[in-house]
């Protein structure tokens, strides 16, 4: 198994567990070839936690605004149609925190986890200077595609 495959395996287990036990939603891993690219640009959200120390990098979580509403609704026990932006942001940050925190526990110590940050927009790209993508794992959840990406910084900078 390559490093990327090992990371994808770990991220799959973590993400499926977070979604089933904390949100009551099923996230099923999707093969890369099955990723459906949307022809229409849509509002997307990315939440991110950075990890620093003996291993440096980041874990990001991407989904559409509609999926973000469902996640927030599952966390708050509220109607997806009336979830305020603050709760969407809070919920997405917590998903990155849980997935990133669980991944951190598999890394060599000492490592520190940042507080989460959340970005929203259409057609944006996110960069962490000096980092490269280690693995990107996509899942199908409630008919939507969600993705978890692990970035690493080799310079530990």
């Amino acid at each position: 198994m390559t490093t990327a495959q090992t990371v994808e395996h770990d991220i799959t287990q973590i993400t499926e567990n977070v979604f089933s036990s904390m949100l009551g939603l099923e996230a099923k891993r999707r093969e890369a070839s099955a990723e459906a690219g949307s022809s229409t640009p849509e509002m997307m959200l990315t939440s991110l936690v950075q990890i620093t120390g003996a291993w440096c990098g980041a874990v990001t979580f991407d989904c559409s605004r509609e999926m973000a509403k469902r996640i927030a609704s599952a966390m708050f026990g509220s109607d997806p149609a009336s979830v305020p932006d603050s709760e969407i942001c809070d919920a997405l940050g917590e998903v990155a925190n849980m997935v990133g925190g669980a991944y951190k526990s598999m890394l060599p110590t000492p490592v520190n986890l940042s507080l989460p940050s959340v970005t929203e927009g259409v057609g944006y790209r996110m960069f962490i200077p000096g980092s490269r993508m280690l693995a990107r794992t996509s899942f199908e959840c409630s008919g939507e595609t969600i993705s978890v990406t692990v970035l690493t910084r080799d310079d530990k900078g």
Binding site: V18, S21, M22, N97, G101, A102, K104, T109, P110, L113
Partner: peptide, 27 residues
């Protein structure tokens, strides 16, 4: 109740006087 649950952090928590550490996601 935290997303971070490696053995070192558990030890730090117990040494400081915590009774337990539950990791997220939890049941």
């Amino acid at each position: 109740v935290t997303s971070e649950g490696n053995p070192e952090m558990r030890q730090i928590a117990m040494d400081a006087g915590a009774a337990f550490l539950i990791t997220k996601p939890f049941t």
